[in-house]
Design a protein around this nucleic acid. Sequence first.
DNA 1: ATATCCTACAACCAAATGGTTGTAGATCAG
DNA 2: CTGATCTACAACCATTTGGTTGTAGGATAT
Lengths: 110, 110
Amino acid sequence: MVVDQLSDAELDRLFQAFADTTRRDIMRRVTVGEYSVTGLAALYAMSFAAVQKHVAVLERASLVTKEKRGREQIVRGNHDGLEKARRLLDEYEAIWRQRVARIADILAEK
Amino acid sequence: MVVDQLSDAELDRLFQAFADTTRRDIMRRVTVGEYSVTGLAALYAMSFAAVQKHVAVLERASLVTKEKRGREQIVRGNHDGLEKARRLLDEYEAIWRQRVARIADILAEK
DNA sequence: ATATCCTACAACCAAATGGTTGTAGATCAG
DNA sequence: CTGATCTACAACCATTTGGTTGTAGGATAT
């Protein structure tokens, strides 16, 4: 099984996307329900264009997908991006555990 | 049990810190071994000052700690930051699973 | 004591980010 | 057809980011 490779640029975009409070809030919303871009924009004290840009950032990071429905664009959470980000942090967690185990071994040798 | 609250600014800093390839690489290194700032700087094709700034970003995000040892500053991985980032992504994962479960219920009702 | 090493930080620069307003193309309602 | 709605995108602006070089101070070695 080839676990698809995460490029540096892809991870940059992923974590960059998470690095903004408004975008994290959008993520929660669109995972639970369906929102048009205008529907999302109504939730925040900023212009429609600003929210649209945030959605674009999430979309480029594969955290969200857009689907055209009539004149609206429905934004939905995309599990792929989230999964990739989690995978990286899990990897770091594993490295951490190895370190802890190694230190325990060293102490045990004494 | 009060699970310490993650402020928006704290999370912004955390994910921002992860959103750079060099910083992610530094994270791996300092989790496994011990590095001075100069030791880290030697690994990358950029100036000492640039690496120093990257370390500072990681430090402000609680992903790394510095400890003075003689004239050197030893950089070490800090589990706290990593844990907080993982907790947020786990939370999103939980929201996702609830959604999937809810959709399954709706389908079952038919 | 002096020279070297390690670090911190300021000043600067180009590019990216997060916001704005304005314009224009689709789609829908009357 | 006309007008309203939804979206996309360009242009602009201030701030942040990621890099540079240069300066200076504290710790070490000879």
